[in-house]
Simulated scan of single mutants.
Amino acid sequence: MRFDTLAVHGGERVPGPEGSVVFPIFQGTVFTSEPGESYHDIKYHRLNSTPSQTYLHDKLAALEGAQAAVATSSGMAAVTTILHTLLGKGDHLLVGDVLYGGTHDFVTGHAERLGWEYTVIDPHDPSSWAVRDNTKAVLVETITNPMMRVGRLREVVAFAREHGLVSVVDNTFASPVNFRPVVAGFDLVFNSATKYLNGHSDVVAGAVAGSAELVEKVRHTQNLYGGSLDPHAGYLLARSLKTLGVRVRQQNANALALATFLAESPKIAGVNHPGLATHPDHEHARELLSGFGGMLSFRLAGGVAAAEEFMAALTLPAVAPSLGGVETLITRPAVTSHAGMSPEDRVAVGITDDLIRLSVGIEDVEDLLGDFAQALDKM
């Protein structure tokens, strides 16, 4: 099945319980057990094994082209559970040099306390990748936040296989509409499902997908840490997955139109979007991705004061963190998503105080362009 058909029908129970077309919420916490059931197979919310949860897991796996998937209580629960599964005391991790702020803070702030070692690598430069005897995994992002860089992901997969590492990728900014990491060879993919997978700014969730063996190990770790997803949130997420392709393709088109418009303005100092021919990763991103995503970042000539003035002049975007929803959101990463990084670390990866990040929604593109034009006219 093609993606939009898969989004509607993948993982569905036909017929559903009591003949239902829409899979219901199983709120109950008590289920009968079967003789010989292992601990992790008992039906219980924390064990991620109730009917509502396994239904969602099957749907997520279908969209990712993976053998299995498991939902988590947040995107951070997804990545931290993966790392706790793959790494033990004395193990070494290779990690991309630009990460979501929460992931960056977790690795840099807790690895040493947990007995892990890590090396920061440039995902664009294979010559910077080196393994040790204790290296277990490599973690990168598909499209980085907030500079929209796209690393040499095929090379990362090949490198991991050559050296026996588990390859892990955060696909939140791309979503499986624009890139399916497991199909491309990654061992594990995770998403902050709060963002594009849900897409309606009303659920906090995460998702992990990959081989049945690895996902089962991740689930067992999660079962002990307790980062399971509530059945009501899972119901909303499964509902939203059915429109994922329709939403993301509109966001792709709107973001590229806005990036092109901003790049042509003399009042804009620079635009970061992989769909622009001027972007440093445009050529290989075009080969790798099915779409360039709904995210972009830019800087105005005039610094922080100009950035704040411009954001205040817009009428459609909400000034708010997070991303991936049907509504357009605008924020300064230095004071929101990446506020936990030191100013020096932020500047080193291009996250200046005046950088603006835009999550483009599904509004009519002409309305968005008109709003950005009137705001620029006031500058």
Results as ranks from 00 to 15, higher is better:
160 A>G: 11
226 G>T: 13
339 A>Q: 05
371 D>Y: 04
311 M>T: 10
272 N>I: 01
273 H>W: 06
318 A>L: 14
14 V>P: 01
109 G>S: 08
9 H>A: 14
89 K>T: 11
197 L>C: 14
230 D>W: 05
20 S>K: 11
228 S>V: 07
354 D>P: 04
112 E>G: 07
290 S>A: 04
3 F>L: 15
172 T>S: 08
11 G>N: 11
312 A>Q: 13
191 N>C: 11
47 L>E: 06
152 R>I: 00
139 L>I: 04
113 R>H: 07
341 M>F: 01
356 I>M: 07
163 H>W: 15
167 S>D: 02
165 L>M: 12
129 W>C: 03
233 A>S: 15
194 T>Q: 14
256 L>G: 00
257 A>W: 01
325 G>W: 13
163 H>V: 12
211 S>Y: 12
139 L>E: 03
159 F>V: 15
55 Y>N: 04
188 L>P: 06
172 T>Y: 03
13 R>N: 09
348 A>H: 08
138 V>G: 06
89 K>I: 10
103 T>I: 07
340 G>R: 00
375 A>M: 05
316 L>N: 09
115 G>N: 11
263 A>W: 03
263 A>G: 02
232 H>I: 10
187 D>S: 05
61 A>V: 13
256 L>V: 02
197 L>G: 14
211 S>A: 12
295 M>D: 09
59 K>P: 00
24 P>H: 09
74 S>M: 12
351 I>Q: 02
29 T>Y: 13
105 D>L: 09
64 E>N: 12
215 V>N: 12
90 G>W: 09
98 V>N: 01
268 I>E: 00
257 A>V: 10
153 L>K: 06
299 R>D: 04
201 S>W: 10
302 G>F: 06
20 S>T: 05
135 T>I: 05
105 D>A: 11
176 P>S: 06
200 H>V: 10
242 K>L: 02
180 R>V: 07
169 V>H: 03
312 A>L: 10
164 G>L: 11
277 A>Y: 05
253 A>W: 00
200 H>N: 08
31 F>A: 03
174 A>S: 11
290 S>Q: 01
299 R>K: 12
108 T>K: 01
265 S>V: 03
297 S>R: 05
62 A>M: 08
258 L>M: 11
293 G>D: 06
126 P>T: 08
107 V>L: 03
32 T>L: 01
309 E>D: 14
262 L>Q: 04
68 A>W: 05
253 A>M: 03
296 L>P: 03
20 S>L: 06
181 P>G: 11
232 H>W: 05
336 T>M: 04
256 L>W: 00
158 A>Q: 09
146 P>Y: 09
287 E>D: 14
299 R>V: 08
245 G>I: 07
370 G>K: 02
206 G>V: 08
13 R>S: 10
215 V>L: 13
82 I>E: 08
370 G>L: 05
57 H>E: 02
325 G>S: 15
9 H>S: 14
253 A>I: 06
237 L>A: 09
331 T>S: 13
279 H>Y: 02
295 M>C: 11
290 S>P: 00
61 A>F: 08
167 S>W: 00
175 S>M: 08
19 G>A: 06
88 G>R: 15
263 A>Y: 03
73 S>H: 03
89 K>F: 10
191 N>T: 13
362 I>T: 15
9 H>P: 00
307 A>W: 13
368 L>N: 02
100 Y>D: 03
